[in-house]
Amino acid sequence: MEPKNTTQEYIVSAIVEHRPGVLFRVSNLFRRRGFNIQSISVGSTERKEFARITITVSGDEKLVEQIVKQLRKLIEVVKVSILDPKNTVVRELALVKVAAPDYKAKADIINYAEIFKGRVVDVSHKSLTIEVTGGPDKIDAFINVLKPYGIKEMARTGITALQRGESQIT
């Protein structure tokens, strides 16, 4: 068994009632208890009355356990689980606007984008905007490759994730 106090990244997935104010309650809980959110994404689910909030946090086992238990106390939170990274599909989308002053730079960047299965979604005289999806590591790697060219703007969605296999909200 791993010791309880090693820090790692956890993905907490919460099914919540889809109504105004729920995200406020969840984020307020994190702030009040001093839990740090690394990324958060919210979206609809297969059932219109529920939304899914996916939160990544970094901490030890005790901390995530406390996060999960506190989340479960919120009346509008229906279900909370910690996703097992080995058994989860994790995706993030990033839009990266990168400086590309000349033809050579553009060609190189497009080349890299292809390697990362990215797509060029906008072109201007001096820049390219690339869309890339994948696990956070892949996106980090892609961004690192582009850095030397000069990243002008970037937007990352934060991860969203689903357990593999049969599980559903019930």
């Binding site: 005790k62 356990e65 238990k69």
Partner: peptide, 11 residues
């Protein structure tokens, strides 16, 4: 009765 209290301050 509040599961969150268990392990919050003391294991």
């Amino acid at each position: 009765v509040d599961a969150a209290e268990i392990g919050k301050n003391i294991e």
